[in-house]
Amino acid sequence: MDASPAFRPDSRLELSRRRLLQLGGLIVATTGACSKESAADPTSPAPPPPPVVKARPLQAPTMPTTPPVVPASHVVLCRDAWGANPPRPGGTPQTPVRMTIHHTAVALGDNTNAPSRLRQHQRYHQDTHGWIDIAYHLSVDRNGNIYELRKPELVGDTATSYNPSGHFLVVCEGNFDEEQVTEAQLNGAAVAFAWAAQRFGIPTDTLAGHRDFSPDTTCPGADLYTHIASGDLQNRVNGLLAAGPVDLHSICGPEASAAVADIEAGLR
């Protein structure tokens, strides 16, 4: 009987074993290499710390500043509130067709004097000149408060050489050859004229100063007149009219009396 052939491993199996050994050695070598790269070398100096970046505090954006707007009164304080005497009988009816500004030509000083100054003007106009009433239709004090004077449907009066017939007359309290008109007073006058332009259909380009009709006066004073000559006051009137109806209403009774008391106390 023939002897059994010696056992020889299959060549493909031997190749696979050899390949596994090679791959095993490659894996070990690769793992060792990665470990050496990732491990810190104790002999190497420590790397410097990253720079510290300080965060800037957030700042609010700079907003453009808007100059404050000086409000104007849209209320007329009735005659009884400032202590007017009754008008005398008479007067000439009119329909206003133009607008004219005056000053009282008497330095006002503190605005707390305004109501009492109106009473003085009325006594002077009635008792000295013999007129039916204070000469103008509306008055505006330094703080822009508006006062009811003579009815606009009656012609005003003047001691100078011009005919005020057809003129809607606003007087600003003070002497503007000596004092400066305030923004509040200008705005109050603009409201008064805008109301008249709307009420009677008066063109705003008729707005003028007393001196424009009479060579024997500097009224309404140099400082106030600059706002006429430059067109500033007319522009204020036009701006009010462009914004819509001008609401100018009269108040009487306790509410108006309290308002006048506040003016005399320096609160308004």
Rank of each mutant, 00 (worst) to 15 (best):
F176A: 08
F176V: 11
D141Q: 06
I146A: 03
A208Q: 03
D216G: 13
H210E: 14
R199K: 14
H125S: 12
D133M: 13
P203K: 04
E178N: 13
D216S: 14
G174V: 09
A159S: 07
L138R: 15
G166V: 01
T204A: 12
V170I: 11
C172N: 15
T217E: 02
Y162L: 02
T160L: 11
G201H: 11
D133P: 13
R123K: 14
Q126P: 08
Y162G: 00
L233N: 08
D223Q: 10
L186W: 03
Q180E: 15
F176G: 06
K151T: 07
D141P: 08
L186S: 03
Y162F: 12
R236L: 07
T128W: 01
D216C: 08
E178I: 15
T160W: 13
R123N: 11
A196D: 06
P203A: 05
Q185F: 06
G174R: 09
D157T: 08
V155E: 01
G166H: 01
V140E: 07
N145K: 10
R199I: 01
H227V: 03
V181F: 05
D157H: 14
N235G: 15
G201R: 06
Q198A: 09
T160I: 09
G209K: 03
P152C: 05
A194Y: 11
P152F: 03
V171G: 06
L149H: 04
N163H: 00
Q180W: 15
S139M: 12
G166S: 00
G156K: 00
Y124P: 00
P215G: 06
G174D: 08
V140L: 12
I228C: 03
R199Q: 14
S230V: 02
T182H: 02
I146K: 06
V191N: 01
I134F: 15
K151F: 02
D223W: 05
L207F: 08
H129C: 07
G201F: 09
R123P: 02
H137C: 13
Q180R: 15
P215E: 07
A194I: 11
S165W: 02
H227G: 01
G166I: 01
G156R: 00
G174E: 09
H137E: 10
